[in-house]
Design a protein around this nucleic acid. Structure first.
Length: 423
RNA sequence: GGAGGAGUGGCCGAGUGGCUUAAGGCGGCGGUCUUGAAAACCGUAGUGGGUCACACCACCGUGGGUUCAAAUCCUACCUCCUCCGCCA
């Protein structure tokens, strides 16, 4: 959420931002209600001040044993006036809040303009795209042939877009999770956390999934709880409402969790394989930093996520998302896209974002600077490190052999009990 | 699920209608002393809104209510703790 005062004083910037994102917000209503709110607030505060003063007088009169009925009668009216104005005030505030909570973050100046993913800026390409002497198969065919997953059974158990890993498939998924967590905790200095997989409405609002994107979430019937679409939500909310000290920052967390997404509006897209599922696993990286450090930390975050693909030896590229492709809460996002030989395309496998103080303001994430009065909002960042299912898909496609077997990347072999090949 | 108890500033903790615009302590910050530090002492300091700066307003888990006046009374809800029951 943007600061009320910022929106009031920077309407042009907000308009530019909305244009860059190809989205809209009712700024006219905002301005109108904001003005009204301030004039009413002024009157209310005035009346409250009067009430405070006169209440003191009443106290004194009563103590002196004198009659205070006249003043009490007067105050009775003042109080009822206040109550009436309070009602219209909260209505205005609700309207203002509804608008402001629906305004997306302001993109960082370095964010390229553009409307769709085709307009994203290519930042770099890393690793060699493999060449095959045969027609490479799609990962769902490889996996079904090796009997390491079975999508038909999964949809029999639940429905479309759910995974069922078997044998070495399940083992591969588990190996990758440990592999990723070990690198991030032992080499990159992240603290491992295991958060709840179900969160309340407040947490979802804190990180920006709500109120705008409720249709993308699975809601628990009979509860105001939701399945998490990413570990970002519970992990960022660990410090909701906290006032941290300067020397606690930066805080780096990594968490493995399942993720649940309704994928509303994506019917017919990526219907086969592990790319787009209602349930998938992800190792997430989350950072809390001081404002002046957040963009350096974003570069570190990106490089931490890249390390996983480098160790596995899979080719990828990094793009900077354009304004139109940028997520609601993000000020800047890098996507890591992994090479998928069967489809001959790069597919998103990680998204690394700086939210600046946008989530911090919603969730109340603050810190105190040494020797200074008052508190400051922290900056929050997160990125996938990496999406596990998509990594499995990438391994299967990139390391497939002509005989249908799949070589296991050397770095991963210790996590597979020394196994070198799935056959 | 049943029965009790509790939620107050960064932390601990006092406070049952107006001498509390939240006591006291710890921690923080500034200073005195010291070669330096510690200790001791003095001072300063909650969070947010508002103002050039003051003034002023709000905030004691959350929302309603009573009252001229609410941290304090009523009410609903949330969270935590203890005991009992059930359970991976």
């Amino acid at each position: 959420m943007l600061e009320l005062k910022f929106v009031r004083q920077n309407l042009d910037k907000v308009k530019d931002s909305l244009e860059k994102r190809f989205t809209e917000a009712d700024l006219a209503t905002f301005s109108k209600c904001d003005e009204e709110r301030r004039s009413i607030l002024l009157k209310i505060e005035d009346l409250r001040h009067r009430r405070n003063v006169v209440s003191d007088e009443i106290k004194e009169l009563k103590k002196a044993g004198e009659d205070a009925e006249k003043l009490i009668g007067e105050m009775r009216e003042v109080s009822s006036d206040i109550k009436g104005m309070d009602g219209s005030l909260s209505k205005l505030e609700e309207t203002i809040n509804d608008i402001i909570i629906g305004i997306p973050n302001i993109p960082h100046p370095s964010v390229p303009s553009g409307k769709t993913e085709d307009d994203n800026d290519l930042l770099k390409e890393v690793g060699d795209v493999p060449t095959f002497s045969f027609e490479p198969k799609a990962h769902w065919d490889i996996g079904e042939d090796l009997k390491i997953f079975n999508f038909e059974k999964a949809s029999q158990i639940t429905g479309a877009r759910f995974p069922l890993y078997l044998g070495l498939g399940a083992r591969l998924e588990r190996a990758l999770i440990s592999f990723m967590l070990d690198i991030h905790t032992e080499e990159h200095g992240y603290t491992e956390v295991l958060p709840p997989y179900i969160v309340n409405r407040k947490s979802m609002t804190g990180t920006g999934q709500l109120p705008k994107f409720e249709e993308d979430l699975f809601k628990i019937e009979g509860w105001d709880y939701f399945l998490i679409p990413t570990a970002e939500v519970p992990v960022t909310n660990i410090h909701a409402g906290d006032i941290l000290t300067e020397d606690e920052l930066p805080i780096n967390y990594t968490a493995f969790t399942p993720c649940f997404r309704s994928e509303a509006g994506s019917y017919g897209r990526d219907t086969r394989g592990l790319i787009r599922q209602h349930q998938f696993h992800k190792v997430e990286l989350v950072k809390f930093t001081k404002a002046e450090e957040s963009y350096d930390e974003l570069e570190k975050l990106l490089s931490n996520a890249e390390t996983i693909l480098k160790r596995l030896g899979i080719a990828y590229r990094v793009v900077t998302l354009c304004g139109g492709d940028l997520g609601f809460s993000a000020a800047k996002t890098y996507d890591i896209e992994v090479w998928m030989p069967a489809q001959n395309v790069y597919r998103e496998i990680s998204s690394c974002s700086n939210f600046e103080d946008f989530q911090a303001r919603r969730a109340g994430l603050r810190f105190k600077r040494k020797g200074q009065k008052g508190t400051e909002l922290v900056h929050t960042l997160n990125g996938s490190g990496l999406a596990v299912g998509r990594t499995v898909a990438a391994i299967l496609e990139n390391f497939q052999q002509e005989d249908g077997t799949v070589l296991i990347p050397e770095a991963l072999q210790p996590y597979m009990g020394g196994l070198k090949r799935i056959e």
